[in-house]
Amino acid sequence: MLRYIDCIDAGTDFCPCTLAERKECIICPQLQDRNVCDCLNWKGTCMCQEFICNGLKSKKSREFKKFDIVETVKLREDLFQLDIKVTKGLARELNNIGSYVFLKREGDIEAYSTPSSIMNSDTVNNIISIVIRIVGPKTKALKEVEDKILVKGPYWNGIQGQRFLKELKNKSCLILARGVSAAPAVLAAKKVMENGNQVYVLLDRGRSTENFTKQKFKDLGCKVEDVSFFDRSGNISGENAAIIEHLLKKWGFKVVLSAGSDWFHRKMISFIRGLDKSINFSTVNNSIMCCGEGVCGSCEIINIRGERIRSCKQQYDPSEVFLKEMDN
């Protein structure tokens, strides 16, 4: 397989970033400590040229900005949706696969920055929708916000293996989702369908009767089925294994988006790889993120080649991360 190296920010308004100033650019060897042009993944601009023309300085980084909350909807005891009115530009930039922002309550210290996925970006009314599950201090703080909230973005690396979803045209894609991770899959489904693809969603009921995203997927025109993927011992139940196998045969999916925890990704990817080696995987990004700028290192993961990847910025091929041994 072709080595899959990508920086989600390469060639955007945020490139070159501060990593270039420190000779740590993910893509450009000239902006590392190797004085050669040898970039593996060309995305239409030369960050070295941009960096030098910008007076050897990085572009401005993202900053927190204050926006109005237009609505807060309680979905469950521990689950609520925030609709935030943002600028036209930010709404447009967040209307992409894998978009996320950092949220923070006004007055809280920087440590409360919480990475949060965009479930939908309404580019007509400039409203972004985010669903938060309350688990600890940061998300509890977000529950306290009233009419204003601080938003830092846009960020785009909330889904790994995006290339597979973006390149899909007039084909079909399977989404397997569970819990709050289903939120970014809604936006992904919308974007994938814009390219003439059909989307089939298997939604885990979890502790509720149905996942909060069910109606949203239906409104987009996806085929949706409620399931309970796992039996008591945490294995994919025989019934669901049969459903997935049947769907793979019938629909000939080229890409599967796994929207759950990392444990969920591992289960799903190894099961499906066992059935069909040609399918590519995208996964919701569950890394711990603090800066989102490739600097702090909290999001670092290691792939099967032993390469360290700062997953807030860098894309990887999920099958190279969630499969213990590659059999291809």
């Binding site: 000239q30 050669v36 042009c37 970039c39 060309w42 030369c46 030098i52 023309c53």
Partner: peptide, 26 residues
């Protein structure tokens, strides 16, 4: 080229026949 070399060792991309911005670097 490509562009990184043309800026680092020269005076920047001069938009030559190899057209790196359009077709990607050597």
């Amino acid at each position: 080229g490509p562009m990184g070399n043309c800026i680092k060792y020269g005076k920047g991309c001069s938009m030559c026949i190899l057209r790196c911005p359009s077709y990607g670097p050597r």
